[in-house]
C-alpha cells in the first residue's frame, strides 16, 4: 500500500516550549492509524499541522508523495483532508442536514440560487444517503442536533468529516465522552470509512480501543515519533512502554 499523507521532521516551538522536535508520521489509504502518546507528547499539535490549522517552522508535509503547503484548514479541506474535533464543533440549534452541509450548502438552481436560496430538500436527501452509508440512524431529520444523544451528535460530526474527506480524516478522541454502545457504533463507523479507502488517523488514550480498531499504531513522545507497531502484533504493555519511554530507543536528545 502506498503512503497517502506523510509528515517529515516537523518542528514547532511555542515560546520556550519545544512542541514538535522533528516529528514524522504517515498514513496509508484505507488504513486506520492510531496516534498515541502521553499528555504533551505533541499529538494534537501534529494533527493541527496536518490539518492546516498551524504551519511548521521546518519539515515537510507530503500528499501522495508530493510536497504540499497547508496554509489554512480550508487548504486542507480542498485537498480532501477533514478533521473531527474533540469538542465536535457542531451547531446544536441546526438540524443534522444543515450541520452536514454547513459551509458547503447546496443552493437552488437558477435565479433563486443566485439570490442565495438554499435547496434544503436536496441537502436532506444527500444527508440521508450519507448517514445510511455510515450506519448512523436518526429518528428525525428535522430535530436540532442539540437534542440528540451524545453518540448521535458524535456520529454526525464524524459523518460530516467523512462525507467531505476524499483522502484523510483526523479524529481527535472521537469516543471520549461516549457510553459503551455509542462507542461501538462510532468505532464501527471508523471501520466503514477505512473500507472506503480513506486513511483514518485516530487519536485516543484508550489502549484496548486502539488495538481493536487500528491497523497500525504510531507513538509520539516529547515531540517526535518513537515507535511504530502493527496493531495485530502489539500488546497494551508495548504501547504504554513506548509512550512512557520505559521501552524502546526514544530517549530525548
Amino acid at each position: 500500500m502506498s503512503v497517502l499523507l506523510e509528515a517529515r521532521e516537523l518542528v514547532k516551538h511555542y515560546g520556550a516550549v519545544h512542541a514538535l522536535r522533528g516529528a514524522s508520521f504517515s498514513v496509508d489509504a484505507g488504513e486506520v492509524v492510531a496516534l498515541i502518546g502521553d499528555n504533551g507528547a505533541g499529538k494534537s499539535t501534529l494533527v493541527r499541522h496536518l490539518s492546516g490549522v498551524e504551519q511548521p517552522e521546518s519539515g515537510q508535509i507530503l500528499l501522495n508523495g508530493e510536497p504540499i503547503t497547508l496554509g489554512s484548514p480550508t487548504d486542507a479541506r480542498v485537498q480532501g483532508i477533514e478533521t473531527v474535533y474533540q469538542d465536535l464543533a457542531i451547531a446544536p440549534e441546526l438540524d443534522p442536514a444543515a450541520n452536514l452541509f454547513l459551509g458547503r450548502e447546496i443552493r437552488r438552481k437558477g435565479l433563486l440560487g443566485a439570490l442565495g436560496m438554499l435547496d434544503n430538500g436536496a441537502m436532506r436527501e444527500k444527508a440521508k444517503v450519507e448517514f445510511d452509508r455510515l450506519g448512523v440512524s436518526l429518528q428525525s431529520m428535522s430535530t436540532p442536533i442539540g437534542s440528540l444523544s451524545g453518540g448521535q451528535r458524535q456520529s454526525i460530526a464524524v459523518a460530516r468529516a467523512v462525507a467531505w474527506a476524499s483522502k484523510v480524516v483526523f479524529m481527535d478522541e472521537p469516543t471520549a465522552a461516549l457510553g459503551v454502545v455509542q462507542r461501538e457504533r462510532v468505532l464501527d463507523v471508523i471501520k466503514r470509512v477505512r473500507d472506503t479507502g480513506i486513511g483514518v488517523v485516530l487519536i485516543s488514550h484508550n489502549m484496548p480501543e486502539v488495538l481493536s480498531v487500528a491497523d497500525r499504531v504510531e507513538v509520539l513522545r516529547l515531540g517526535r515519533r518513537v515507535a511504530e507497531f502493527r496493531a495485530a502484533d502489539a500488546t497494551i504493555e508495548d504501547l504504554v512502554g513506548a509512550m512512557t519511554g520505559a521501552l524502546g530507543d526514544g530517549e530525548a536528545a
Partner: peptide
C-alpha cells in the same frame, strides 16, 4: 443561525 449557535463551528467549516 449557525454563528449564533456555535461561532467556533462556523469558523472551522
Amino acid at each position: 443561525f449557525a454563528i449564533g449557535s456555535n461561532p467556533e463551528a462556523a469558523r472551522r467549516v
